[in-house]
Design a binder for these strands. Structure first.
Length: 892
RNA sequence: GGGCGAAUAGCUCAGCUGGUCCAGAGCGCCUGCCUUACACGCAGGAUGUCGGGGGUUCGAAUCCCUCUUCGCCCACCA
């Protein structure tokens, strides 16, 4: 522990070793803190085959900061990690691998294919979690879940059967969203609507009785499946046609004109072609009007045998062109309009979704939504930022049934068995596999489909803890506390978890949903593989360290805002994090390198404890600043304001501790001034606090430094070091004001030196005329500091003389004068005097306004008003003095 | 078609319930420094009519209205 520290922080050398040490200490398990209140965070499961991207990086950095903060606060912090089997995505990946061998899943058959996917998942499935380790994620790996695990699969069956028994799961024949590439049904949420410019074709449909009627459509190819035309019942234009027929072009089919309230007379021509098999609205209209349904497409969206020969086998978009062309030839194309409309696309492969009539399993959602909505309205469930709660409520209020069956092989096979005997026809949902029909004893076959992956992830808050068994984990850790995820996951996962929690556990699974922003590039585009604008977090970690990555993420994470990073310029984005780590490292190196033995405690009953009278002004100041930082950082963490936490800690470490305090104590440490032991004690103490405050953000470097602080023993770790408590004795407004004046004085002299180009090594005499007893005390107390940091040869209490030199006035009205001898540039001096007078005039004007404000004068405490009056008076005086001086010098 | 968010220094953004953090941070830029923790650094500096317009108020970047420009979410007008 006393090995000398390298002059530069090299994260690569220590992060992996520290992580291994943490795992060895077993602190990621909540049991390590048996006495605290529990605090549970559920990791949004990444796809088992995923590679870590910035979105994961951001999400998990936030979770880790949160869980580390809670753990240090003494809670039994459980962060439950896991992956989901990602039905569609994973099956797609393996099918692509097979395609490379010229095979399809059908060549292998179901069992062999699933075995193949398992093999793939076993090989690659741990990758994403390993990558999270590089980030420093302190998950309880011993409890890692996978949605296709035996336990979670049992939970899926339990949930399905319970809902089935309550009549909340049903099989239905409806229009669903179908992905023609993945060859499966999708839920409404999985069909992403994107606005896109399109066309609206106006087609003439010849009337059986002569003439024609015009319908408008965005999908002309579906006309091949039309079985009717609908108009609004009150639409006078078509009143006489109702009940008559239309001769459908191309097919020659005779179809009726019907009425339906769903038709908007104002849109298009007020007449709608009805394709019950290919549009949800048309399906409803067709059902009400008793129209036939003709499915004209194959599962992969080619035209099937229901259409005329020349259309068979055509892709839907080719068929569209052909239909339009044919209408044009027939003189039946009335017109084509540009039309902006939303097209659904598969959220996994971006293929245009085809509404398709099929038999699917659904969950009846309204009864489940009710308690979930109530929890939000009661305030038991809150969202950060708050406005996201509206999205949640709106979705719940307009909930639609959830299509949960998928025509895939990779997933939880639907636990429903059908009797193969036609007379019996018994259907049973079962927790265990069935071999025989429960009704007739005959052969049964299991439903071929699998369940939506989200049907397993919505159970995770309890299934990952052992449900449906009554495990100790479930009893102890359910419900959890906070869920950290991206806003686009609200409907997929968050809402459904709340519903499942209410339904199966009788309680919401977490009380706070923290929704962070999205990682975008400088053009504000979402980072994605397809756009090639991504940043690889592992690359950043390799080059800048995990701490730097985390610092940059968290310092840019204002509540509810996105994180913009430049993929083309990692240096600009991440150097600040690395630089800060290096700064901290070197501050630590300095403090540790200047300890010459045991460090005295600064509080407590120990006989060697530093007594209050031993503190210098600087000591009291840094202690007060440290205390203020503890308060601000703690409050920021509690409010998920990670950017604020990062900022106050950064400022404390860099500006207060490094720039001022460490500079101040050097003479004491070097023995040039007494009080070295006190300075060591205070520096060590405040540095220790700063490290603890920073640990949730930069876990590695803070651990590396903290374990080297004096008094640490083998096995100590900052991970469970006590979270710093605010201390009323540490606060000192006087010390902050007094040292503030010291800083102002030093800065003023430095400004004058820079302005007049005084040689860096040269000393100058400094005259001050303190305007307050505060200033007097401060300059007296930190005389040495001022002289050293300002490079002053003398520091005298004196009025400004008439000789040439630089002037400045501090906030409290204290006048500063730096005589600069004969070789001074008159023009420059006049300009500086002018600037200073202008500055004072601005202050004076503000101050006068403030004091003229009756509300301020009457409401503020008397001494504050008096203080402000004094400031005004002394600024006036100084402004006058400087004006006189300008005249004396003959400035313009 | 609804609903929401954002417009602040060249860039990325803070600024919580209106007045001692009414102008901030980091990066970039300019000047001078390798001052024995740190050049991934130190000291100093420049830059903003806080999107436009109106209003409320003693006082607004901060509240209200409106306009403009971006972005997001939701929606069965074919």
């Amino acid at each position: 522990m006393n090995t000398p520290l390298a002059p530069q922080y090299e994260p690569q050398d220590i992060e992996a070793a520290l992580y291994a040490r943490w795992v060895g200490l077993g602190l990621f398990q909540p049991e390590s803190r048996p006495h605290g209140a529990r605090y549970v965070v559920m990791m949004p499961p990444p796809n088992v085959t995923a590679q870590l991207h910035m979105g994961h990086g951001l999400n998990n950095t936030v979770q880790d900061a949160l869980i580390r903060f809670e753990r240090m606060c003494g809670r039994q912090a459980l962060w439950l990690p896991g992956t989901d089997h990602a039905g569609i995505a994973t099956q797609n990946v393996v099918e692509r691998l097979l395609a490379a061998e010229d095979l399809t899943r059908f060549d292998l058959g179901r069992d062999a294919f699933v075995a193949r996917v398992w093999e793939y998942v076993r090989e690659t499935g741990a990758t994403i979690l390993d990558q999270l380790r590089a980030l420093g994620a302190s998950c309880d790996w011993s409890r890692t879940y996978f949605t296709l695990d035996e336990g979670l699969s049992r939970a899926v069956r339990e949930a399905f059967v319970r809902l089935y028994d309550k009549g909340l799961v049903y099989r239905g024949h409806y229009i669903i969203n179908w992905c023609p590439r993945c060859l499966t049904a999708l839920s409404n949420e999985e069909a992403e609507k994107h606005e896109a410019p399109g066309k609206l074709w106006h087609l003439r449909y010849p009337l059986a009785g002569g003439g024609h009627l015009v319908v408008a459509t965005t999908r002309p190819e579906t006309m091949l499946g039309d079985t009717g035309v609908a108009v609004h019942p009150d639409d006078a234009r078509y009143a006489s046609l109702i009940g008559t027929d239309v001769i459908l072009p191309i097919t020659g089919r005779r179809i009726p004109i019907v009425t339906d309230d769903a038709v908007d007379p104002a849109f298009g021509t007020g007449a709608v072609k009805v394709t019950p098999a290919h549009d949800p609205t048309d399906f409803e209209i067709g059902r009400r009007a008793g129209l036939a349904t003709i499915d004209v497409m194959t599962p992969d969206a080619h035209m099937n045998d229901e259409v005329p020969e020349r259309y068979r086998g055509l892709d839907r978009f080719e068929a569209r062109r052909k239909v339009v062309a044919e209408f044009e030839e027939l003189g039946l194309l009335e017109k084509v309009e540009e039309h902006q409309h939303a097209v659904g696309r598969c959220y996994r492969c971006d293929t245009v979704v085809e509404p398709r009539l099929s038999d699917q399993w659904f969950v009846r959602m309204a009864p489940l939504a009710e308690p979930a909505l109530q929890a939000y309205r009661d305030g038991r469930l809150r969202f950060i930022p708050e406005r996201r709660g509206d999205d949640y409520a709106q979705w719940m209020e307009n909930i639609r049934d959830w299509c949960i069956s998928r025509q895939l092989w990779w997933g939880h096979r639907i636990p429903v068995w059908y009797c193969e005997s036609d007379e019996c026809g018994h259907v049973a949902a079962s927790r265990t596999d069935l071999a025989r029909c429960g009704a007739c004893g005959g052969n049964v076959r299991q439903d071929e489909d699998v369940l939506d992956t989200w049907f397993s992830s919505w159970l995770v808050p309890f299934s990952a803890l052992g449900w449906p068994d009554d495990t100790p984990d479930l009893a102890h850790f359910y419900p959890g506390n906070t869920l950290v995820t991206a806003p686009e996951i609200i409907f997929f996962w968050v809402s459904r978890m709340v519903m499942a929690g209410c339904e199966f556990m009788g309680d919401i699974p977490f009380s706070t949903v923290y929704l962070h922003g999205t990682v975008r590039d400088t053009q504000h585009r979402k980072m994605s593989k397809s756009l090639g604008n991504g940043i690889d977090p592992l690359d950043v970690i390799a080059r800048y360290g995990a701490d730097a990555l985390r610092y940059v993420i968290l310092s840019g994470m204002a509540v509810g805002t996105d994180l913009i990073l430049d993929p083309a310029d990692l240096e600009t984005s991440f150097a600040p994090g690395r630089n800060f780590a290096n700064k901290l490292w070197n501050a630590g190196r300095f403090i540790l390198g200047n300890l010459d033995g045991p460090v005295r405690p600064i509080a407590g009953d120990h006989p060697d404890t530093v007594r209050p009278h031993e503190f210098t002004l600087a000591d009291r100041w840094i202690i007060a600043r440290c205390d203020a930082t503890v308060r601000e950082a703690t409050s920021a963490y509690e409010k998920f304001r990670f950017n604020d936490a990062a900022s106050v800690i950064y400022h404390f470490i860099w500006s207060d501790l490094a720039d001022w305090y460490i500079e101040q104590i050097k003479p004491r440490l070097y023995g040039d001034q007494p009080g070295g032991d006190v300075a060591r004690a205070v520096a060590t103490r405040t540095f220790d606090v700063a490290l603890r405050l920073l640990h949730p953000i930069m876990p590695f470097i803070t651990e590396a430094l903290w374990t080297r602080l004096p008094g640490r023993r083998e096995g100590d770790t900052i991970m469970i070091a006590r979270w710093p408590a605010a201390d009323d004795r540490a606060a000192s407004p006087d010390a902050e004001r007094e040292f503030g004046l010291v800083q102002q004085l030093v800065t003023a002299v430095r400004q004058i030196r820079a302005e007049y180009g005084v040689q860096p090594g040269a000393s100058v005499p400094v005259h001050v005329a303190p305007a307050s007893s505060l200033a007097e005390r401060a300059f007296d107390a930190e005389r040495g500091t001022i002289m050293r940091l300002a490079k002053a040869s003398t520091l005298a209490v004196a009025e400004a003389g008439n000789e040439p030199g630089g002037h400045a006035v501090l906030d409290d009205g204290t006048a500063v004068f730096v005589p600069l001898g004969g070789a001074i540039d008159l023009e420059r001096e006049c300009r500086r005097l002018g600037d200073e007078v202008d500055r004072l005039d601005t202050l004076l004007a503000q101050q006068e306004r403030k004091l003229a404000n009756e509300q301020f004068v009457s409401r503020a405490p008397a001494h504050v008003v008096e203080n402000e009056r004094q400031k005004l008076a002394s600024w006036r005086e100084q402004a006058g003095t400087l004006r006189d001086k300008r005249k004396l010098l003959g400035c313009g």
